[in-house]
């Protein structure tokens, strides 16, 4: 990993913050593109970062910035990354709150967003596929991924419970294996 300047950390996350529409997971393709291209993390590390960001409360995208910023430059890095990811939406929303109230019904804005929405969906689908190919090395991994997809998308279970259940199950399993190996 290259050493990153605070300014470049701020700029990278400001760019991510400025172009994430719809929040949360829509940010993942942008994070992946920015950070992998700058050599700040490996593609395989993304699931670890997301799992960790999901285990803390709050806005997912902000949690990712805090984590990545800290790994790059410690406390100052996490501060730069957080301010970067929050600032664009802060300024834009402030401008909207101050200026126009009927922004939503503006026909030009509506047309532009009609084009953006399906693009955002495909942008989330591609990294999911790429990560699956990189990280899912056996049939169990594919089963866990498929079960999570179904439980979240079709059953409507919160990701928090699924991640917690997996941590507990995997922890018990690791503990059991450790005991068996010790005998």
């Amino acid at each position: 990993m290259k050493k990153a300047s605070l300014m470049s950390i701020f700029a990278a996350f400001a760019k991510i913050g400025a172009f994430t529409i719809g929040g949360g997971y829509a940010m993942i393709p942008l994070i992946q593109d920015e950070l992998v291209r700058r050599n700040w993390m490996k593609e395989e590390e993304l699931p670890d970062i997301i799992a960790l960001a999901q285990s803390a409360p709050g806005v997912l995208a902000v949690n990712v910035s805090i984590f990545v910023g800290y790994r790059l430059r410690g406390f100052k890095g996490s501060l730069a990354a957080t301010i970067g990811s929050v600032l664009p939406s802060f300024l834009i929303i402030l401008a909207i709150a101050m200026a126009f109230r009927d922004y939503r019904d503006n026909p030009v804005v509506e047309r532009v967003f009609k084009g953006i929405r399906p693009v955002v969906v495909s942008l989330i689908a591609v990294p999911a596929y790429n990560m699956a190919v990189k990280c899912n090395k056996n049939i169990w991994a594919w089963l866990i991924a498929a079960a999570t997809l179904v439980l979240v998308a079709f059953v409507g279970i919160s990701p928090v419970y699924i991640l917690l259940a997996i941590i507990i199950l995997a922890g018990l399993f690791a503990w059991y294996n450790g005991r068996r190996a010790a005998k």
Partner: peptide, 17 residues
Amino acid sequence: WLRPAVVGLIAAAAVIL
């Protein structure tokens, strides 16, 4: 165990949309 679950979560995010 967690990594494949995260992959599933992201795929779900796309499906939900």
